[in-house]
Design a protein around this nucleic acid. Structure first.
Length: 642
RNA sequence: GCCAGUGUAGCUCAGUUGGCCAGAGCAGCUGAUUUGUAAUCAGCUGGUCGGGGGUUCGAAUCCCUCCACUGGCUCCA
């Protein structure tokens, strides 16, 4: 007998070799119907797999992450079966579950799948799901597995097998499809009731662009049609938040083909937001002891050779222009220019930390396929600053930058983000990263310690560091789920030496400063793109391009409206009058569509009483106010950035 | 850059298997209307069908090529 412990602490005895499905059935038939997999001693197992000894068992339903991923993993196999039946000879690479659904990579030879094929594959999947085929697990010797795939001529699975240990290899079969797979899977295909293949895309084998491009099909499945429908509605809702759509509708920015891809033009409404953000940044940075500088948009080749950028990032820079025999580059980063400001004067330890800030304009030649609205562009305005400090000052300075982030995130109500400690990859030293193994480990430890001391949760990711040092990146997601770095806080142990930057220390010796590169508000482009989606276009009052729209009921009250406008402008409130000879309902509708925070309606009643009828966007009629009273409440709301 | 797709008026979209001057709604303009909390009415303007080349008696529709965009991959200081 074996002893099974459930999550609530209850223990029960079962015959050895009992499967988790049988255990579930012994508890209740209802439970057995709703479970997809079981967590056995922390590992997700098939329900049909026999348990061999005492264990902790937790049943996984659709609502558990482990349940969903098992469901989607099995769905990937179902899709593979459908594809194989329609495209005989197709070879499969890997088909994992992902955040929302699953994909499978495959080599179709000289055939290709277009989006119109997806529906046919879906249809086939539905057919196969209805057969309710059982997913069967089979342990297999490595030799036999190699034989199987050698006969099949499948070099991809053979490649996978190379890295697997004998005795640890399993095959899964459902219907006519057998795959090398570590599992686990749901009991049978019948549970998959709703299927949507979302897109087909190319993906390099093993993610390396030197390798062959495989075909990747993305899909998502659900246990009920209702859940799929809800998911599709959610996708539609997300599209309405897309900053590319909102940016156009609200007159924030435009991208013109003739100006160039990835080169946004900021329209008047967008420019107001830019100016408000810069005001916030300048005030905060002044308070935090930064000094402002301004630097040119270009620099000589030698500058970027000295900094070390050219060998690492030349491909991402616009090609050089040659003038009088000298090559100049458009700057892709501000740091070399700032370093030259540090170098321009003799520096004493008494000046440190020296914090140089600039909203710098940079140009990066991003690959054409990577451009994405405002989130990935070729011209960007960075909330940049470089902090030159001693080693002793580092922790405090780095933490102060983190505090600045958190202050901003609070203002903007940004809650969904992940702080990522981006580390170097030792395998790429000298190639992608400056070849200073000890300095890497040392600075990485310094940053880690600051984060731990500040009790800020973070994840560590190898291979995401800057070429000159580790960094903390703040990761966010666009409305359609793409991940971006919103803000960054980086250590630089390399450029100080490369530029020969020194200060005189207390012992009257020259010493190289550590440098922190930071951009808490990222770039205007990405930050405003993010804010558009974050607020769904409903900007808080202090950021709203038009804060108040005055709507006269008829021409008769136009004069009174103009008076009100004058008063609002006196208080620096951004207001406009809708002077069209439209009905009030129409004026309200248009102002609502433009997501203007406050509408004030002035008719003969208001003109006679010297009042305003106030309407709040998305809320409705707020009643009658005296002009001064209303302006005061606006000013408070603006000041508090509510 | 790579794979797959898309490109018709400022916007959202129709345009049957290639066939009469390429359509609609919204927006814009002009006029009428003077209006009370999410669309007043009428008339009008507006498109070298992404650019170029080709096939054809004839191309928005078929082919080639370039550009841009979309979804991914690679990349992301």
């Amino acid at each position: 007998m074996m002893n099974i412990t459930f999550p609530d602490g209850v223990q029960r005895e079962y015959q050895e070799g009992t499967t988790s499905m049988e255990i579930a059935k012994s508890i209740s038939e209802g439970l057995a119907r709703n479970i997809l997999a079981a967590e056995v001693n922390g590992e997700v197992w098939d329900l049909s797999r026999p348990l061999t000894g005492d264990a902790k068992v937790k049943f996984l339903k659709w609502d558990d992450d482990g349940g969903k991923s098992t469901f989607w993993h099995s769905s990937a196999h179902l899709m593979a079966e459908a594809v194989e039946s329609m495209f005989p000879g197709v070879k499969f690479w890997v088909g994992p579950p992902i955040d929302k659904g699953f994909y499978y990579d495959m080599d179709l030879g000289d055939r290709s799948i277009s989006e119109s094929d997806l529906e046919k594959i879906e249809q086939k999947m539905r057919e196969l799901a209805k057969q309710n085929n059982v997913y069967t697990r089979k342990e297999i010797a490595k030799k036999d597995a190699i034989d199987y795939f050698t006969k099949k001529g499948d070099e991809y699975k053979l490649d996978l097998l190379e890295n697997l240990e004998d005795g640890n290899i399993t095959f899964y079969t459902q219907g006519n499809f057998t795959d090398l797979c570590r599992g686990p899977h749901i009991p049978s295909t019948g549970a998959i009731k709703a299927i949507k293949l979302t897109s087909v895309a190319g993906a390099y084998w093993k993610g390396d662009e030197k390798n062959k491009m495989l075909t990747r099909i993305y899909g998502v499945t659900f246990p009920t049609q209702k859940e799929l429908d809800e998911y599709l509605v959610m996708l539609e809702e997300a599209k309405k938040r897309d900053h590319r759509k909102l940016g156009k509708e609200l007159g924030i920015f435009t991208i013109d083909e003739e100006v160039g891809p990835g080169l946004p033009l900021w329209m008047p409404n967008g420019t107001i937001i830019i100016e408000e953000l810069e005001k916030l940044a300048k005030e905060s940075e002044l308070e935090a002891g930064y000094k402002r500088v301004v630097t040119p948009h270009i620099g000589k080749e030698q500058l970027y050779l000295t900094s070390g950028h050219l060998p690492y990032y030349k491909d991402s820079m616009y090609p050089a222009m040659e003038l009088d025999g000298t090559r100049y580059y458009l700057k892709a980063m501000n740091c070399p220019h700032h370093h030259k400001i540090f170098a321009a004067e003799q520096r004493s330890y008494k000046e440190l930390p020296l914090r140089l800030a600039e909203y710098g304009t940079c140009y990066r030649y991003e690959q054409s396929g990577e451009l994405f609205g405002l989130m990935r562009v070729r011209c960007l305005h960075m909330n940049d600053a470089h902090i030159y400090c001693t080693r002793d000052q580092f922790a405090q300075e780095f933490k102060a930058v983190n505090d600045l982030y958190l202050k901003y995130f609070k203002i903007f109500g940004i809650e969904k983000y992940v702080m990522r400690l981006s580390l170097h990859d030792p395998a790429k030293l000298g190639e992608k990263y400056i070849n200073e193994p000890e300095l890497w480990l040392e600075t990485e430890a310094m940053v880690r310690q600051v984060m731990i001391d500040a009790e800020i949760p973070f994840v560590e990711v190898k291979g995401e560091g800057a070429f000159y040092g580790p960094k903390i990146d703040v990761q966010i997601w666009s409305a359609i789920g793409r991940e971006f770095t919103l803000a960054t806080n980086q250590v630089d142990f390399a450029q100080g030496r490369r530029f020969n930057l020194t200060f005189t220390n207390q012992n009257n010796e020259p010493e190289t400063p550590l440098i922190i590169h930071r951009a808490p508000l990222g770039t205007h482009e990405r930050f405003i793109g993010f804010l558009l989606e974050h607020y769904a276009g409903n900007f808080p009052l202090w950021l709203a391009p038009v804060q108040v729209k005055i709507l006269p009921v008829s021409d008769k009250t136009l004069e009174y409206a103009q008076n009100v406008l004058k008063n609002l402008k006196k208080s620096d409130i951004r207001a406009e009058i809708d002077e069209r000879s439209e009905k009030i309902g129409r004026k309200i509708r248009d102002a609502e569509m433009m997501k203007i925070p406050y509408m004030i309606i002035v008719g003969e009643k208001e003109a006679a009483e010297d009042t305003l009828s106030v309407r709040r966007h998305g809320v409705g009629d707020k009643g009658s106010f005296k002009t001064n009273e209303f302006i005061d409440s606006l000013l408070t709301e603006i000041r508090e950035k509510a």
